[in-house]
Design a protein around this nucleic acid. Structure first.
Lengths: 201, 201
DNA sequence: TTGTGTATATTCACTGGTTAGTATACATAC
DNA sequence: GTATGTATACTAACCAGTGAATATACACAA
C-alpha cells in the first residue's frame, strides 16, 4: 500500500473517468487526462501501461458503484416487485435529465470500440451487464417466477434500450415508458403460469 | 445532374459508409475514405465541406434503406400482428450473427458523438428512429390498439436495447428474447382494454 | 545518529506518425 | 474561355508512447 502510490493512481482514474465519460474515449488524449489529474503524461504511463489499460481501469472503477446504485434504488422503493423495478427506471429518468448525463459509459465505450472485439474494456462492460442480469435473475427466482432468466434479460433489454434511445432523443420520458413495459412483463410472468409465494418483500 | 458529378459523390458516401460503420467515426480519417473511394482527399473536400458533413451524409444514406428493410421483414412475415413484429427481431438476429455486424450505425454514431449535442449526424439519427416509431404507431393504430404510441415506443426500446446488448455480448439470442417480449407487450395491448377489429391483416 | 544503497515515483524533452483542412495549379467539357 | 472537377504538395496541430535523468522514502549498516 505505501509504495504503489494508490492515491495517485486513483486520482488518474478519476480524471480519466470524468473526461472519457463526457467526451468519449478517442476524443480524449492521454495528455488531457494527465493534465486534469495534475501530473505529467510520463507519470501516467508509470501507473498504466497503455491508453487501453487506462480505459479498462475507467470502466472497472464504475462497475461496483453502478451496481450498488441500482440495488439501492430497488431496495428503497415501496411496494411489490413491479414497483421496485419501475423505481429503477424512474430514478434513471431523473438522472438522465441532468445536462451532463451522457448515457451508459459501458455501452458508449463498447459502441466506440466495436472494431476491437477483444478489447479489455468491452469485456469489463460485458461482465458488468452480466452481473446486473444475474442479480435480477436471482431476485426474480426468489419470487418463484418460472423463467427468471428470460424476464431478467427482458428487463435488461428495456434498460439498455432506454440508455440508447434517451441518448439519441434527449427525452427522458422514454425511461418511464420502459418502466411501464417492465411492469407489464413482470406482471405477465407473475400471473400467467408459475406459482408465486407473495409479492412483497 | 451532369455537372455536380453525382456518381463520384455517391462513391464517396459508399466508401465512408463502409469505413465509418466498421471502424467508427473518429477512428477513420478522411484520407482513408478518399483512398477507399479511389480519389484524393482534396477531391473529397470539393464534394463535402467538412468531415462532419461527410458523417451526416453517411447516416442520411442509410435512413431510407434501413426503414425499407424493416418494412419488408414485417410485410413478408406470416401471421398476425405479434408474429410480424417478432419477424423483425428474428431477421435482425440473423443479421447480427454475421461477423461483420457492428450494431446500429445510428446508435453507435450518436454514442461516439455524445459530446456534440447539436451535431447534424445525431439529428439525422434521431429523425430516423422517430420515423420508425411513427411507422409502428400508425400500424398499431390501424389495429385499434388504444395507446399505439406507447406500444410503438416500447417496441423501439426493445429493438434499440437489442442493438446495444448484442453488440456488447455478441450473443444474438438476446434478439429473440426481445422478440418474445415484444409479442407479450403486443398481446397485452390487444387483449386488455381497447376494442380490436381483427388481428390478421 | 548518520551514511548509503535501492526500489518507488515523477519530470523534461523528445520521436515518429497521423490528421483535418487548404493554396495552388491543372484538366476537361461545353 | 469559363464552370466544374481532380490532383500535388503543404501546414499546423495533435497524439501515443519512450529515453534519460532525477527526486523521494525507507532499510540497514556503521
Amino acid at each position: 500500500m505505501p509504495r504503489p502510490s494508490e492515491p495517485t493512481r486513483a486520482r488518474i482514474v478519476q480524471a480519466a473517468s470524468a473526461l472519457f465519460y463526457s467526451e468519449g474515449i478517442r476524443r480524449v488524449s492521454v495528455d488531457e487526462v494527465a493534465a486534469k489529474a495534475g501530473l505529467t503524461k510520463r507519470t501516467l504511463y508509470y501507473h498504466f501501461k497503455s491508453k487501453d489499460d487506462l480505459v479498462a481501469a475507467y470502466l472497472a472503477a464504475r462497475d461496483q458503484p453502478n451496481l450498488a446504485l441500482f440495488r439501492t434504488w430497488f431496495a428503497e422503493a415501496e411496494g411489490g416487485m413491479p414497483a421496485k423495478v419501475e423505481a429503477i427506471f424512474r430514478n434513471l429518468a431523473r438522472s438522465a435529465r441532468h445536462p451532463k448525463w451522457k448515457g451508459c459509459g459501458f455501452l458508449r465505450t463498447s459502441a466506440e470500440l466495436a472494431n476491437m472485439p477483444g478489447h479489455p474494456a468491452i469485456r469489463i462492460g460485458a461482465a458488468h451487464k452480466k452481473k446486473f442480469e444475474d442479480w435480477l435473475r436471482t431476485t426474480f427466482a426468489e419470487q418463484g417466477i418460472v423463467d427468471p432468466l428470460k424476464l431478467a434479460r427482458q428487463i435488461l433489454l428495456l434498460l439498455d434500450g432506454s440508455f440508447a434511445v434517451v441518448l439519441l432523443h434527449r427525452d427522458a420520458s422514454y425511461m418511464e415508458t420502459a418502466g411501464e413495459a417492465a411492469r407489464a412483463l413482470i406482471e405477465t410472468a407473475l400471473t400467467k403460469p408459475g406459482r408465486k409465494r407473495g409479492s412483497r418483500k
